[in-house]
């Protein structure tokens, strides 16, 4: 099987986000980049499917900045076989990214059987790329999957919806599947894996190579700003057991009478 995984590189979750000078994105000069956390589940699922289907390959495709390639190196160290990297800015919209991913997959020169991706990039939180890519490739897609099983010629996946309910899908291949937390436990890269990753092939392309231009841009962002800060709240000391009853009663009273939420 030819398995692909779309990987995004995003600012670490502990990043203190600051808008850049012209308000078109965030300041990225001193950011620590990581693999998008939801993509780790996609890489792991691809490796599990590969293990069940000897002779399969796992190819990574990433669209983004090339100064730092942490995300791809981590995924290669986990066990992916090769990678395609399309050089681009890190703040592209979903339509542009999906079109570049499609171009990158085509440049890899093999027909995909399954394309995995994380359900969402934790940078722009758009939740668009998997379904956009699937539509561009005319493939079925299921997003937010928390379960994966083979079902004869097809695949059975569980998609999480509101309230933790699950939709069970039967989907034919080729297809796009977008993973959520809970589907598996991503492995850590081993030391030999990290050493081997350095020698694995990585094809580097430009947006022009994959047929993407400025005309593909669908969203224009401006006015990046921090949300308004809340005024400081009230703090009560209830470390002394004798005071606990009184403090809790006071807070409940405030919730009712001042905040009016109870």
């Amino acid at each position: 099987m030819n398995i692909f995984v779309c990987v995004k590189q995003v600012p670490d979750t502990e990043t203190k986000v600051q808008p850049n000078a012209d308000g078109t994105f965030i300041e990225t000069t001193s950011i620590k980049w990581i693999m998008n956390p939801y993509d780790e589940f996609a890489v792991e699922q691809a490796l599990l499917v590969k293990a069940d289907n000897p002779g399969s390959t796992v190819t990574l495709v990433r669209v983004g900045g090339v100064k730092d390639t942490e995300a791809l190196r981590t995924a290669l160290a986990m066990g992916a076989d090769d990678a395609v990297l399309v050089e681009a800015d890190d703040n592209l919209d979903s339509y542009t990214i999906a079109k570049a991913l499609k171009g990158g997959i085509e440049k890899a020169g093999k027909q995909p059987d399954i394309i995995f991706a994380g359900k969402q990039g934790i940078d722009d939180d758009a939740l668009q790329v998997p379904q956009v890519l699937a539509q561009m490739l005319d493939l079925p897609a299921v997003s937010v999957i928390v379960g994966y099983e083979k079902s004869g010629e097809n695949i059975s996946v569980k998609r999480e919806i509101e309230g933790g309910a699950l939709e069970v899908y039967e989907v034919s291949t080729p297809c796009v599947l977008a993973t959520n937390k809970g589907i598996n436990t991503p492995r850590y890269a081993s030391l030999p894996g990290i050493m081997k990753a350095k020698r694995k092939p990585m094809q580097q392309l430009t947006l022009a190579d994959v047929g993407v231009s400025e005309d593909d841009k669908r969203l224009k962002y401006s006015d990046f700003k921090l949300p308004p800060e809340k005024p400081p709240g009230k703090k009560f000391d209830a470390t002394d057991e004798a005071k606990q009853q009184e403090v809790v009663a006071e807070v409940v009273k405030l919730l009712r009478e001042e905040a009016k939420v109870l």
Binding site: P11, T15, K16, V17, P19, G23, I26, Y95, I122, D123, D124, D125, D215, K217, R218, L219, K220, Y221, S222, D223, F224, K225, L226, P227
Partner: peptide, 17 residues
Amino acid sequence: TRPLFAGKCLAKVEIQG
């Protein structure tokens, strides 16, 4: 207006095309 980075910031967005 869209929140990004799980609401760590907000931005104005316009659609083109």
